[in-house]
Design a protein around this nucleic acid. Structure first.
Lengths: 234, 234
DNA sequence: ACCTGAACACCGTTCAAGT
DNA sequence: ACCTGAACACCGTTCAAGT
């Protein structure tokens, strides 16, 4: 007579003490792998390894890799905290933009995943809704509010995608961000002055490491531009 | 005695009447493949096929795929026409933004390639220079001009990347863009009204197909915001 | 119900060898 | 100088089979 472990040959076997996979654990593991090796390193095989399972098993829980990345995008997007509704519309939009950026920076290559996925999840619908509400409350026309909500979302996405690019390039070459910035500054400074007078002159400002300050600048420009339409329109 | 074709066994053989490859023809073919099958379909093997050559041959002309994509990025970027210097700073920046968008739409997945490559090519330096010049001419402070130039470039990139996403998703499902937009509109309209009042109300405006108009809106908002800093600062 | 083995049809890249 | 054959070390995905 052979000895059987509990659960063996039943409908809900406990394999080596581990519960069966589910989408939640899958997404969690994907986030871990992502932070360690980046999007290009996040392969189904590698993800399976981390979960102590074979790659083919993942396809029981998820249709394909794209669907998995969609779930990851939703999970990351869920991290955006809604701004306090007692805030005035402008502060509310500012808070939203900062939250967007924070979340896009919260996991390696999060921008690439969020920007690559069509926004279907309910989190993103909710964020669109509160953005629109603030814009309508401010007094923008319907079409302008619609445009502006996309504009604000795209701003955060575009900013972070740019912000992260040099950092990634630096990492790939084993440099720190500051070193990479200094290198670029040197390149700008040594450009031919007659041909590139402004680049040479602004070499320092163009390679300013203070991304927060730059994000604030762009956000203010955007909101100032929107506010102008308000006054003229109303 | 064996018959030899002209050039055989010499240092510059003409193979089957075709000149040997060079980087220029490589980049040209890459652009063709890109437009037909998109970035994901642009493989070294497929590109080699198109050139009547084996994949390994490409590595004689180019270090690796990333370098090739860098060359493609440069080639695409070279299509941006410089604005007439007789224009006022604001019109010059507007022209630049529209040119940026036009070029980013001129080849399939051009945004992904341009946004993914660190801007090293001389074209992009030149564009940065004339953008900065316009901003300084307008009267922006050095740091603000530097920030604003990135802001404007990122705007075009971010806009097109968003603009192209739904179109790509539609293509993958064999739909036309208008159909996809109508579908999304339907989804927004049938959202629960108590939870998503603004989304329901603005379903039509959010799925407006007029991307030109939306681009113009965002650009005006940006430039208005910049102009405000001018008046206050000067 | 959940997982595995083994395969399929791909990738980018290298390198000794051909002409 | 330029190209090829053949291989290496990977991919995502499928599917019959196991438990």
């Amino acid at each position: 007579m052979t000895i059987r472990r509990i659960g063996e040959f039943t409908d809900a076997p406990v394999r080596r003490g581990r519960p069966p996979l589910d989408r939640e654990r899958l997404v969690g593991a994907a986030l871990e792998v992502l932070d360690e090796v980046g999007l290009d390193g996040l392969t189904m095989r590698c993800l399976a390894d981390r979960l102590g399972v074979k790659a083919a098993s993942l396809y029981w829980h998820v249709g394909n890799k794209e669907e998995l990345l969609g779930l990851v995008a939703d999970e990351i997007g869920a991290g955006v905290r809604e701004p306090d509704l007692s805030l005035a519309w402008r502060e509310r939009l500012e808070a939203l933009a900062w939250e967007n950026r924070r979340v896009l920076l919260s996991h390696r290559d999060a921008v690439r995943i969020l920007a690559g996925a069509t926004p279907t999840g309910s989190n993103r619908l909710r964020l669109a809704e509160i953005t629109l509400r603030a814009l309508l409350e401010a007094g923008l026309a319907h079409q302008e509010a619609a445009h502006a909500s996309l504009l604000l979302t795209d701003y955060a996405t575009g900013f972070v995608s740019e912000e992260v690019m040099l950092a990634n390039a630096a990492r790939k070459r084993g440099m720190r961000l500051e070193e990479a910035l200094a290198e670029v500054r040197g390149q700008f400074e040594s450009l031919p002055v007659e041909e590139y007078p402004s680049m040479v002159m602004l070499a320092g400002q163009l390679t300013n490491a203070d991304a927060d300050e730059r994000f604030r600048f762009g956000l203010e420009v955007l909101l100032d531009g929107l506010e102008k339409r308000l006054i003229e329109g109303g």
